[in-house]
Nucleic acid binder design. Structure first.
Lengths: 338, 338
DNA sequence: TTGAAAGCGCTAACAT
DNA sequence: ATGTTAGCGCTTTCAA
C-alpha cells in the first residue's frame, strides 16, 4: 500500500509535487515529473480515493439502485448505464433492493457514505422521504418517477405506459377479445399506477371492472398465484394483460396446466419484452420497452449533472412499442387475415 | 453532513468521547453518553465510513465481481451472496466485467481502493496476475477457480463439472445418441476447461472428436452462430452438448429454423438450469447447478475470513444434477419406455 | 473517565 | 516551480 509519501521520498520531491504530477494541477519541471512517474510505476502506487473522497472531491463513481436483479429487465438497463459510464471513466456500484423500500433507503445512504458522485435510482416506492431533503449529489430516477415536494427538480427517464397500455388494449380489441383481466403489481410505482389506471380508463363503462384486477408482484411465482386465484374466482375472461413478462410466464403455465390454450382460448400479453420472451413457449406478445436506452440516457444525464453542476432537471419520456408474437392472436383471427 | 465535531460540540464533550460512545470502545459516564446519543439523534449524524476506511478499519462492505449480469445464472448467485451478507450486516458492491480480463482487474483494484473488506470473484480468465501478489484482503473465488503460484491459499466454491458433464454424456448414450457435438465457451476458465476435457475424455476413442467441438461465448447469439457454423460444416450429428443454457437457446433456434426437430432429430442439453429453461420451448434438459448455494457459501467463507482473520483456505466442490426435460429425449425412446 | 493530539492519504492554499 | 502545512472525519494512543 504505497502512499504518496513513499513516492515523494523515492523521487526525492515533496508530496505536493507528486500530487501535482498525478493531477496535472500545475506545471512541474520535466525531470522531476519523470522521476515521479518512475517512482509511481516501480512502487505500483495508486492514489487512495478514500482520502480524496474525504476531501469532498469527485470519486468517479456512480451508484445504481435497482429493485430486482433477477428480473432480466433490470440487468439490461444496467448494461446501458454501464456502457456510457465506462466510456466516461466512471465506475458503477450496483445495489439490489428486492423491491423493499427500507432496503432502498439503506442502500441510498450507503452510497452517499461511500461518496459516489451521483445516484441512479429505480425506486420501488412512491414514498421516498430521503429524496425530500435537499440533495447533496445529483440523483436521476429511472423507469419510475416519484412526485412530491422538492422532487420537481429531479431528472427522470421513464416510459410512456399510458401509451403502452393503450397499445395492448387496442390490440386485444383488434383480435376480438372483450373480456380482459389484469394481473399486475400493486400500483405503488409510477409505472404500475399508469398501466393500472389506463386499464381502468379504457373500461370505464364497466362498473365491475375492478373485480377483473389482481395484484401481486413482478415475479413468475406471483403470476402463477394470481392466475390460480383468477381461475378459482370463476370470472369469465378471454384475455389477460400482465404487469410484466415474468407474470405472464407464470400465468401461462397455470392456464395451460388447466387445459386452457394460449392463444386460442385466451390471449396473453406481457410487458417489458425481456429477451427470454422470444424463447418462451408460446412466444410472448408484449410491450417492448427501450430499456437499454433508459440506462444510456440516464447515465448521460447524471454524468452531465455531476460534471456541469446542477442544470435544468430533464424529464424524458420514451415511447414503447407493441411486439405481436404468439400468445395473443388466436388461430381464428390468424386464418381470417390470410 | 454533521460530523463528529458537531456532535461533540452539541453534547459539550470531546470528539474522543463521542467516538467512544459510538464504538463502545470504553466506558463513558452515563449522563455524558446520554447527551451524546441525544445529539447524534437530533443532528441525524452518521459516521463517515471514508474516514474510517482511511484509518484501515473495516467498512462492512464486500465487493462482488461477476462476468455477465445479463446471464441469469449470475444474478441468482448474487442473491445467495446478498442474502447472507445482509444477514451479517454487510453491504455488497456489485461489478460487472463483460467477461473481460482487463476490466476484471480494473474492477478489482477499484474495489480495493474503495476499501471493501473482502472480494468475491467470479473470474473470466485463468491468468490473474493481480491475485499472484500477496493479498491484502480476503478473496474467495466463485464458480471458477484459478491455479497458480500463491493461489493455493485462496478459498473457492465451485461445482464438479467433470461429474456434470459425465451425467450429460451418459444420459445422451442412454437415449441412444452416438454422434455428439460440443458447443461451448473457449476453455479458459476452470469450468469451461473441465467440461471440455471431460467431453474429450469420454470420446477418447474417436480421433476426429476435435472437429466436433465449437467455441464461442456464453450467449444466445454465440450459440446461434456456432450452430450455424455446425450446420454449414456438414458434420453428421444427433446430439449437442452446450456450454450453458443460453448457448442452447441460440442453437435450438437455428436447428428448428432449419427444419431439424428437437428432440426427435437432435437431442440438446444445456448447462446451468437458469430459471427460463423451464419456460423454454421445448423445455430444456440441462445440468442444474446449485447456484444460490454457491453464493451463500462463498458469502459465509468471506465473512469468516474477514472477521476471524485468515484461516485455512477452504476448497468446496458442489455436485450438480441432471434435469431431464424435453430437449433430449426423442419420441422413439419415450415410447419405448412406456 | 475524559480530553488533547497525532496521524491515516490526499489536495489546495500559502509561502518560498 | 517547488515545498510546507492545514485540514477533510475519524480512531487511538497518551496524558491528565
Amino acid at each position: 500500500m504505497a502512499s504518496i509519501k513513499d513516492v515523494a521520498k523515492m523521487a526525492g520531491v515533496s508530496i505536493s509535487t507528486v500530487s501535482r504530477v498525478i493531477n496535472g494541477t500545475a506545471n512541474v519541471r520535466e525531470d522531476l515529473s519523470a522521476r515521479v512517474i518512475e517512482a509511481i510505476k516501480t512502487l505500483g502506487y495508486h492514489s487512495n480515493p478514500l482520502a480524496r473522497g474525504l476531501k469532498g472531491l469527485p470519486t468517479k463513481t456512480i451508484g445504481l439502485i435497482i429493485p430486482d436483479i433477477e428480473n432480466p429487465f433490470f440487468p439490461a438497463m444496467v448494461r446501458g448505464v454501464q456502457d456510457v459510464a465506462k466510456a466516461n471513466g466512471y465506475a458503477i456500484f450496483l445495489c439490489n433492493t428486492d423491491e423493499d423500500a427500507k432496503l432502498e433507503e439503506i442502500q441510498y445512504s450507503l452510497l452517499l457514505e461511500k461518496k459516489v458522485d451521483g445516484i441512479l435510482l429505480v425506486t420501488s416506492t412512491s414514498n421516498t422521504p430521503f429524496l425530500q431533503k435537499k440533495l447533496t449529489i445529483p440523483v436521476v430516477l429511472l423507469d419510475r418517477y416519484v412526485k412530491g415536494a422538492n422532487l420537481s427538480d429531479l431528472s427522470y427517464v421513464v416510459v410512456d405506459h399510458t401509451f403502452g397500455m393503450n397499445l395492448i388494449l387496442n390490440h386485444l380489441r383488434d383480435v376480438g377479445r372483450q373480456k380482459t383481466v389484469f394481473l399486475g403489481s400493486k400500483p405503488i410505482t409510477s409505472g404500475a399506477r399508469e398501466r393500472f389506471q389506463t386499464f381502468l380508463a379504457y373500461h370505464k363503462g364497466d362498473p365491475k371492472i375492478r373485480s377483473r384486477v389482481f395484484f401481486g408482484k413482478y415475479t413468475e411465482e406471483s403470476g402463477f398465484e394470481m392466475a390460480e386465484k383468477l381461475l378459482k374466482s370463476g370470472i369469465d375472461f378471454d384475455s389477460v394483460v400482465c404487469g410484466n413478462d415474468l407474470i405472464a410466464f407464470g400465468a401461462i403455465e397455470v392456464l395451460e396446466k388447466n387445459g386452457i390454450n394460449v392463444p386460442n382460448d385466451v390471449s396473453i400479453v406481457g410487458y417489458d419484452d425481456i429477451s427470454f420472451s422470444l424463447y418462451h413457449s408460446p412466444k410472448l406478445t408484449t410491450i417492448h420497452q427501450p430499456v437499454y436506452e433508459i440506462g444510456e440516457i440516464a447515465s448521460h444525464l447524471i454524468i452531465d449533472a455531476i460534471e456541469k453542476g446542477y442544470s435544468e432537471p430533464k424529464h424524458i419520456k420514451l415511447e414503447p412499442r407493441l411486439v405481436i408474437r404468439e400468445t395473443s392472436v388466436p388461430r381464428s383471427v390468424k386464418n381470417a387475415n390470410t
